[in-house]
């Protein structure tokens, strides 16, 4: 997933779209907005970021899960949680540097799924397809022809907390 911070306005449509699409219960969220202001009046800059699970290449949450409930889906490389295996021990939560996970009232852990159910149907994730500024892009980074690959080649970008060493897969164009 590639998000253009030059376009993002922090409107949180992505947050609501995720909540309705995935029927996330009241009081919980899989994605959220970070608003970072730097500088002093009147020399300021402002960055909005729509954040969620980074579906890390090296996911400590998966490594820390004692039951295999947290796993990387082979076909898509998406990090998922299998409620049938999850004990709610919260080890994966402690392991995620992005605080992207949470425990549902039902007791198992949940988080962003990259809307795998939509992606399998050839659709964009709900947040991506709702975003009014069209600042979010979703695609296959292994495919050099994809939109996301092209953007990462042609624009400057960053990931959040790279030093945490998880090799995150949500990229922010700057």
């Amino acid at each position: 997933m590639v998000i253009d911070t030059k376009l993002c306005i922090g409107c949180a449509d992505c947050v609501v779209a995720c909540k309705t699409e995935n029927e996330v219960p009241e009081g919980y969220c899989r994605d959220w907005i970070a608003e970072a202001t730097s500088g002093t009046f009147p020399d300021l800059s402002l960055e909005y970021r729509s954040e969620r699970c980074n579906h890390c290449d090296s996911p400590p949450c998966v490594h820390a899960c004692p039951t295999g409930a947290s796993f990387v889906d082979e076909e898509s490389n998406v990090t998922l949680v299998d409620p049938d295996l999850c004990t709610g021990c919260k080890s994966c939560i402690a392991a995620c540097p992005y605080d992207a996970r949470f425990v549902l009232p039902e007791g198992y852990v949940s988080k962003c799924t990259f809307c795998i159910h939509r992606v399998r149907e050839g659709l964009d994730p709900a947040c991506v397809s709702a975003c009014p500024t069209r600042c979010m892009h979703f695609g296959d980074l292994n495919d050099p022809q994809s939109d996301v690959s092209r953007l990462l080649r042609t624009r400057s970008w960053k990931v959040i907390a790279p030093a945490a060493g998880t090799e995150p897969n949500v990229y922010y164009l700057t």
Binding site: A12, V15, W32, I33, E35, A36, T37, D99, V103
Partner: peptide, 13 residues
């Protein structure tokens, strides 16, 4: 100065 705030991030615990 850096000001960093979030919208909606309010998952219990």
């Amino acid at each position: 100065m850096e000001e960093l705030i979030t919208t909606q991030k309010l998952n219990p615990h």
